[in-house]
Structures are given as structure tokens and as C-alpha cells.
Simulated assay, not measured.
Amino acid sequence: MSTDTLTWTAVCAVDDILPDMGVCARMDGRHIAVFRVGETQLFAIDNVDPLSRASVLSRGLVGCLGGRIVVASPLYKNHFDLRSGECLEAPEHSVRTHPIRVEDGRVFIATR
């Protein structure tokens, strides 16, 4: 789907997210985890851990595993690739990613 046909929603300011941390945003009834990696990289994935069904991924630890930028679920410690949403330990438990961009210091996430 082209990013031109998506509906973009402002969720927070970039400065509201500390580097290498995540925050949770609620959009269209979904919980979205928004991560800032370093000073400039931003990622958005579903916040609900598929194994526990708890909305906790935004509270996970951000790091690098095998050259991939990941977040470790705070409950079951599964690692989710922030670019693809793939669960490294069990790909069948992968999460959805969401388009993200910054305009005038604000973080926007697209809904499909």
C-alpha cells in the first residue's frame, strides 16, 4: 500500500521518547509501541505481546541481536525485530509493523 493513501495521526513529540526506549500509543482501538533507537531512528509495532496477550512490548528492552534491532518482551523475553515485527524465537508469533514518520518534531503513525 502506498504511504500516500494512509491516514497519518500525530501521537507524540519525538522528544517525548527517550533514546533506546519505547512508549505506547492508542490508535483506532489498537495499542502501538513506538520506539526511538539512538537519536534518529523510529519504529512502530503492535504493543500486544502475542504470547501473553498483554500490552507490554513498549516496556521491553531495546537492543541488537544478530545485527537486528530488536525489543525483548518484558514477560517471555521473546525478541521482536523492530523493522519487520518478526519474532526471532517463534516467527508464527510475529507482530504487525506500522509506518512512521516525523514532521516538525512530531511523531506520526499511519493507519491502514
Rank of each mutant, 00 (worst) to 15 (best):
S84P: 04
I32E: 08
V71L: 06
I45L: 01
H79T: 09
A54K: 11
A44Q: 09
L61I: 06
S52Y: 01
V34I: 15
V14C: 10
P50N: 04
L18M: 04
P74A: 03
C64N: 14
F35Q: 00
P50S: 07
R53Q: 14
L61S: 05
L88Q: 10
P19W: 13
A13V: 03
C12Y: 02
R26V: 12
G38A: 13
R53Y: 11
V70D: 05
V56F: 04
N47H: 01
L65N: 02
A13L: 13
G85V: 03
V56G: 04
L88R: 04
R59I: 00
R59Y: 01
N47Q: 01
G22K: 11
L75A: 14
L75R: 11
D81F: 00
V11L: 05
P74K: 07
C87T: 08
D20Y: 07
G38E: 11
Y76K: 08
E89A: 02
S73K: 12
L57H: 04
V62Y: 07
L51Y: 12
C24R: 14
P19H: 12
A54F: 03
A13M: 10
M27P: 05
M21G: 02
F43D: 08
I32S: 06
R36D: 10
G85A: 01
D81W: 00
R68F: 00
S73V: 08
Y76M: 04
R83V: 08
F35G: 08
H31C: 14
V11E: 02
V62S: 07
I32F: 14
Q41R: 04
S55Y: 01
R30N: 15
R53T: 13
R30G: 13
L51M: 13
V48G: 01
L61E: 07
D20L: 04
R59M: 01
D49M: 08
H79P: 06
V56L: 10
Y76A: 01
L18V: 03
G67D: 12
A13Q: 14
G85D: 06
G63W: 03
A25L: 09
K77S: 04
G66P: 09
V34Y: 15
V14T: 13
I45N: 00
S55C: 03
V23N: 05
F35L: 01
I69C: 10
I45A: 00
A44K: 10
E39W: 14
S73I: 08
M27Q: 15
G38Y: 02
V37N: 12
G60W: 02
G63I: 03
E86P: 06
E92R: 14
P91D: 10
D15Y: 03
G29R: 15
S52K: 04
M21N: 07
R30D: 15
G66C: 05
A13S: 12
H79I: 02
E39C: 14
F43K: 07
V37A: 13
L18Y: 03
D28Y: 13
V37L: 05
C87V: 09
H31E: 15
F80N: 05
C87K: 10
S55V: 02
S52F: 05
A25N: 11
S73C: 14
D49F: 01
E92F: 06
G63N: 08
G85T: 07
A72D: 09
V62P: 05
V70K: 02
A13F: 08
R30T: 15
D46S: 08
H79R: 13
L57N: 04
G38W: 01
L65F: 03
T40A: 15
A25H: 12
V62E: 05
D46C: 03
I32C: 10
Q41G: 09
S58G: 02
C87M: 09
